[in-house]
Computed example of a mutant assay.
Amino acid sequence: MPFKTILTVLGEHGAGEDLQIAMKLAGEVSAHLTALLVVMAPVPSGRYQTLSPSWLEVRERNLQKLAESLTTIRERIAPSGLSFDVDSVYAEVTGPAYDIGERALYADLLLAGPAAFMSEDLKPQIISGGLFQAGRPVLFVPPDVKVTLKPKTILLAWDSRPSAAHAARDSLEMMKMAQSVHITMVDPVAASRVSGDEPGADIATYLARHGINVSVDTLPSSGRFVVETLHRHAIDINADMIVMGAYGHSKLLQLILGGVTKSMFSEAKFPILMAH
Rank of each mutant, 00 (worst) to 15 (best):
I127F: 02
L230K: 06
L273S: 01
G11E: 11
V38T: 12
F270V: 02
M264L: 11
Q125C: 11
D236G: 07
L63S: 03
A35Q: 04
A31S: 14
M40L: 10
I235R: 12
A268N: 05
L131I: 14
L7N: 07
S80D: 08
T94S: 14
R74A: 12
R161N: 12
A41S: 15
D85V: 04
Y98I: 12
K146I: 10
N62D: 13
E92P: 09
E92M: 12
S180I: 13
G113T: 09
K176Y: 08
M40W: 00
M185W: 10
R161S: 15
Q254W: 08
P53L: 11
G46E: 15
T34P: 03
A104P: 01
R169N: 10
P220D: 13
V145Q: 07
Q254L: 05
I212N: 03
P53N: 07
I77L: 06
I256R: 05
H249T: 06
L257K: 03
A116C: 11
V214M: 00
V43P: 00
K150M: 10
G196A: 07
S163A: 15
Y247F: 08
S263F: 02
T148F: 09
L156H: 09
S171L: 01
V145I: 08
G248V: 05
G258D: 02
N62W: 01
V227P: 02
I77K: 04
A112G: 12
S221I: 06
A116G: 12
H166K: 14
L122R: 06
P142H: 03
L110H: 06
L109T: 04
A268W: 02
T50G: 01
I100T: 08
E198M: 12
L273I: 00
G27Q: 14
L33P: 04
G200R: 12
V145R: 11
A204W: 05
A116E: 11
S222N: 15
S180G: 07
K24D: 13
S163R: 03
A164H: 09
A104R: 01
P2T: 13
L219E: 08
T8L: 04
D187L: 04
L25N: 08
K152T: 13
M175F: 06
M40C: 10
S45E: 12
R193S: 14
F132Y: 13
A168P: 07
E60W: 00
D197N: 11
A164T: 11
S250P: 05
Q125W: 04
R169T: 13
N238T: 09
K152S: 15
K251V: 05
P199C: 12
P2M: 09
A67E: 15
V260W: 01
M175H: 04
A201H: 12
V227C: 01
I126E: 09
E68V: 07
H233S: 11
M274Q: 02
G46C: 10
H210M: 06
T229L: 04
D144A: 14
F265E: 02
E75W: 00
Q133W: 02
T71L: 14
A26D: 09
P42I: 10
K269P: 00
V194L: 14
V216M: 09
S52Y: 10
T72P: 00
A165R: 06
G211Q: 05
H233E: 14
A107D: 04
